[in-house]
Simulated assay, not measured.
Amino acid sequence: MVKKFVLYLMIILIGGGCAALPPLPPPVEQTLLPPDLVLPQKPEQEETYTLGPQDGLRITIYDNPDLSREVVVSADGSFVYPLIGQVQATGLTVRQLEQELTRRLADGYLVEPQVSVTVTQYQSQKVYVLGAVRSPGIYTLRQDTTLLELISKAGGPTGDAGLEVLVVKASEATPEGKNLPLIRVDLEKLLAGEIQQPIAIGEADTIYVPQQRYFFVYGEVQRPGRYPLERNTTVFKAITLAGGFTRFAAKRRLKVQRVIDEVPQEFHAQMNDRLQAEDILVVPQSYF
Rank of each mutant, 00 (worst) to 15 (best):
Q197R: 15
G85N: 11
P198C: 07
Y287Q: 11
V168I: 14
R104F: 08
Y227E: 07
D186S: 08
T48W: 00
Y208I: 06
Q45C: 02
I201Y: 01
R95E: 02
D76Q: 11
Q270R: 15
L166I: 13
L148H: 11
A106G: 08
D36Y: 14
E70F: 05
C18K: 14
D205R: 01
K169T: 10
Y139R: 04
L83G: 04
L24N: 03
L39Q: 01
V282K: 11
V167C: 03
A249L: 07
A132G: 13
R95H: 02
V167N: 01
R103V: 02
V28K: 15
Q276P: 03
T118V: 13
D273F: 14
P136G: 03
L67M: 11
E278Q: 14
K169P: 03
I207M: 10
G108M: 06
M10D: 04
Q270M: 10
R252M: 12
Q54L: 13
V185C: 03
N179H: 03
A250H: 12
R223E: 03
A204I: 02
E46N: 01
I151L: 15
G16Y: 06
F5N: 08
T234H: 02
S74M: 06
C18D: 09
G244L: 09
M10K: 05
F5C: 06
L97D: 00
S152E: 09
V28E: 11
L141S: 02
P25M: 11
E278R: 13
K237A: 05
E194N: 15
I11Y: 11
V80S: 13
Y128I: 02
G159T: 10
L275V: 09
E266L: 14
V127D: 03
S116H: 10
R253N: 14
F215G: 00
K251T: 08
Q222P: 01
F5K: 11
T90E: 08
E98M: 06
Y122Q: 02
G177D: 01
Q257V: 14
P113S: 01
P53Q: 09
P157W: 09
G91Y: 06
Q197I: 14
G162H: 10
I11R: 12
Q99C: 00
I201G: 00
E176V: 05
T48N: 03
F216D: 01
V73K: 05
P136Y: 13
L51R: 02
A154T: 13
G77C: 03
A269N: 05
G17F: 08
P34I: 05
A20F: 11
D205P: 03
G162F: 08
D76M: 06
N232Q: 14
L97E: 00
A170K: 00
R184I: 13
V94F: 00
E44D: 06
L147M: 07
T145S: 15
L101Y: 03
L9P: 00
T31S: 12
G16L: 06
E112S: 12
M1F: 14
D160I: 11
I14T: 07
S124R: 08
T145L: 10
L37Y: 09
M10S: 07
P25D: 04
A154S: 08
L51K: 01
G202N: 10
